[in-house]
Design a protein around this nucleic acid. Structure first.
Lengths: 155, 155
DNA sequence: TACTTGTTGATACTAAGTCTCACTAACACA
DNA sequence: TGTGTTAGTGAGACTTAGTATCAACAAGTA
């Protein structure tokens, strides 16, 4: 088994664990979908991508989107907000400290690859911003857009 | 004329100016729509809000959305990317240094009011992030979510 | 094994736009 | 001040990205 496959299998198990913990059933269609999602790793994908991939196995459209929603609620998946729409999803790495309320990402606008920042670049600024504006800040979402090293080199 | 009205009129003129500069025609429907948009000021609104408001005057659905798209292209309008969807629009203040490629905002999750940060809190971090990740960074989008002073007080 | 209840797929529906097309009206020029 | 060209318009059909409904099914429990 390859390194990456082992990582993916661990991700699948992790997600299935979350699912059970939250009181949901582990069903065949969910396992299939979660495996497909894990295979995308740091690459973003659309609901249609996933449906096209899984439809041949008999999965229904509703199940795909229902499960995507469930995975978002579990914090496993998040959406990319790009200038041309918000229909792309990406796996949020477990235990990275990222959640729907706190997200710091780098997105490659050419290949769609997503990297998560280890350190929040705004840690220090948030208190100051709250002070200056009177807002009670409870989350933030930072998307940095550019070209990843590979895509930059490919030019 | 009130202060706010004067500001709005100036905003309308500014947007109409941009429109002309970009080689577009200044038409009655566009003037109406831009006036309506300017009246929302820092409050966010949906395409449907605007259509409901303008439909009685005879404006068509297509024109509303077409013009919203045009205003986004001109950098006058941007979308809000919230967890419950991305269908809200807000005026980007002219000459604030904000553009689709560089956006630092505070959004009130209760009333939808939007404030733009005067200073980019990531100025210093971006070079370091580019260095650390190998990305060629060419823009970012920061949305800080919370409660504005009024909404915080109203609790 | 039977029961209960969550989950599924088919299908109809919706929200938020987008496209097409015949018609209209800005603006440039005579 | 008309006139022609072409961008812009409204009506309405269509599309995309889901969501709702519902009868059939299957997971876990008794």
């Amino acid at each position: 088994m390859h390194r990456a496959d082992a990582g993916r299998a661990a991700l699948v198990d992790y997600i299935l664990g979350l699912l059970e913990q939250a009181g949901h059933r582990v069903t065949e269609p969910r396992v299939q979908l979660i495996q497909a999602v894990a295979a995308w790793e740091r690459q973003s994908f659309t609901g249609e991508d996933l449906y096209a991939e899984l439809r041949p196995t008999g999965l229904g459209r509703a199940t795909v989107f229902r499960t995507l929603r469930l995975l978002q609620e579990l914090g496993v998946l998040s959406r990319l907000h790009l200038s041309d729409g918000c229909q792309r999803y990406v796996v949020t790495p477990p235990a990275s400290g990222h959640s729907p309320e706190h997200m710091d990402r780098l997105i490659c606008r050419r290949c769609g690859r997503v990297a998560y920042l280890d350190e929040c670049p705004m840690e220090d600024s948030l208190a100051r911003i709250a002070q200056a504006t009177g807002y009670r800040v409870d989350g933030h979402h930072l998307d940095i857009v550019g070209l990843c090293a590979e895509c930059s080199a490919a030019r």
